[in-house]
């Protein structure tokens, strides 16, 4: 299994990178954990590959005004093990630790995973629950896209061919917020059959904030706002959680594949939503 021929560039700065991408014909290589296997199977055959792997600016972790800025090139391992990330945004760190395996976590990147938008990837659930923002840069401009507009469909995001993701902007978690990511693993690939990320904060005996992101169930990850609405204001009892979790698949067209039917996915999504919320509470 061997990729087709391509031209290769390895810019040293973001500016160089977006200059190379300006014609919209090149494909961005981050860690390569999604792209290179596809190229080997020849399901992907870019003529020009722009490797972002050596742009130091893209591997920074900074805290700024209540937000955590994670460089797009941070590996899953870095996200999972950074003390700052674990403290300020534990959900993304926990989710990162569930991705793939040790070697994939050493090489795969946050931005690469987000851009690939695999319907069964782990990160998107957390990014939805965190209401992440994505900074997209092109030659002459940049924009920040909310996660709700970022994931468009299976393998499809708002990233244009001439853009790169430079960072993901996540909220610094308020004290008292509990988080959890729970997934039913597809045994072969380790991807999520269904994965649910939850953030919950209680205040005065009631749920003051609930955010739930779901991956694996639909063509792209989404925020289960129905669950959130039912949970917020409730006492967060087991019955409250169960009732809220039952709304996770409302209005969702569930995926069906070799590994799980859409009915089963819906059911598991409800179970895992309840579990993630319970664990977060």
């Amino acid at each position: 299994m061997i990729p087709q021929e391509f031209n290769y560039s390895r810019p040293g700065t973001v500016q160089e990178a977006v200059d190379l991408l300006a014609d919209g014909e090149a494909k961005v290589l981050a860690g390569g954990m999604s792209l290179i296997p596809l190229m080997k199977l020849r399901l992907s055959a870019p003529e020009h590959v722009v490797d972002l792997g050596r742009i130091p600016d893209l591997s920074r972790i900074t805290e700024n005004g209540g937000s955590l800025h994670l460089g797009a090139l941070l590996t899953h391992h870095q996200v999972a093990t950074s003390a700052l990330v674990q403290e300020k945004c534990p959900l993304i760190a926990e989710t990162a630790s569930h991705i793939g395996d040790a070697q994939v976590r050493n090489m795969g990147t946050l931005g690469g995973s987000a851009a690939h938008a695999d319907p069964a990837a782990d990160y998107p659930a957390a990014l939805c629950a965190l209401e992440a923002k994505v900074r997209l840069v092109r030659r002459d401009s940049e924009r920040v896209v909310g996660i709700g507009d970022f994931f468009v469909d299976a393998l499809t995001t708002a990233v244009e061919p001439e853009e790169i993701i430079t960072e993901l902007i996540l909220p610094v978690e308020e004290a008292g917020t509990g988080v959890s990511y729970q997934k039913l693993r597809q045994p072969a690939s380790g991807f999520a059959i269904v994965g649910v990320a939850a953030r919950v904060r209680k205040d005065g005996g009631r749920v003051a904030m609930a955010r739930v992101g779901v991956t694996g169930l639909a063509a792209s990850a989404y925020r289960a706002t129905g669950v959130e609405a039912l949970l917020e204001g409730s006492e967060g009892s087991q019955a409250d959680v169960a009732a809220a979790a039952a709304a996770v698949d409302e209005g969702i067209e569930a995926i069906s594949d070799l590994h799980a039917s859409s009915d089963y996915r819906r059911h598991v999504a409800r179970v895992y939503t309840a579990r993630a919320i319970q664990a977060a509470l």
């Binding site: 597809q186 045994p187 072969a188 690939s189 070799l258 590994h259």
Partner: peptide, 26 residues
């Protein structure tokens, strides 16, 4: 018992063509 199966779909295509879909125990 728990994981493995070679699956051909009803059109005769092998759909467990890689370790991404054929679950070898880890």
């Amino acid at each position: 018992a728990l994981y493995e199966q070679v699956v051909y779909d009803d059109t005769g295509q092998l759909v467990t063509g890689e370790y991404m879909d054929y679950a070898l125990p880890k």
